[in-house]
Amino acid sequence: MALTESEFDYVRRLVYRESAIVLAPGKEYLVEARLAPLARAAEVSGVNAYVAKLMQCPDRATEARVVDALTTNETSWYRDGAPFEVFRSTVLPALLADRPVNQPIRIWSAACSTGQEPYTLSMILGEQLGSTPRTAEIMATDLSDDALARAKAGRYSQLEINRGLPAAMLVKHFRREGTEWVVGDAVRSRISFRKFNLISPTPPSTGFDVVFLRNVLIYFDAETRRGVLRRIRAAMRPDGWLFLGAAETTIGIDDDWDRVVVGRTSVHRARAPLATAAAVRRV
């Protein structure tokens, strides 16, 4: 049976309160599809009964599972590979030229979901830094405990591995264990995982050279987007680089960013004071 209006409204408010993600009317089907496995696991007959029970006696654990289920995105490795290519060919060389040799390149994967994004970045860093003395650190954060646990485990089914991971990277960086493929230690060693909610007022760290925040802003309303972008700017070095999803932009939300078009994609940089604007154009 379809969710009633009050049940959907309850879920919508819960998700907004916990994650600032907006579930627009018409997303009832999404709520039903994502919560059905939770209802089954709880041995409750259907999503209606599951939500109704939560409304009657709210508990934190169930609420967290509901928010998890509705905020976790399907990801693939190089789906929309253009940002990774720009990172490899343009952003990373620019950073290596600018930063002192003994200073690690710091990257924040700000909605890392099940880990494909930070692992892909780490594989690229491994290949580009090679035997140079340069080092890099990736902080990978997500709101969802479930996604974060899967990201940390670094174990992927064959179907997940098939999703846009170049075969050369697969054989170089993964080993098989049973039906799964496991990320190698060298790739893991650059990454630290941490739970983080983008709506919280303080960032997990500061001084990032690069932030990946792809396909997240689309779920927020305008006011939340503005706040998230401001806080990210504060967590970045002034000449850092921000990657958003292909359909996302800072324009009209937070005008303190410049959009730099590189090849088929674009990168965002904090708007520089006039005196240093020339340096930005070096791209």
Binding site: Y78, G81, N162, G164, A246
Partner: peptide
């Protein structure tokens, strides 16, 4: 690797530059 989903084929062809990403 078999089995695969249609998306997996499309994404690999995109990696190879034979179809547009997405």
């Amino acid at each position: 690797i078999k089995p695969f989903t249609p998306d997996a084929i499309a994404e690999k062809l995109a990696l190879l530059g034979l179809v547009p990403a997405g």
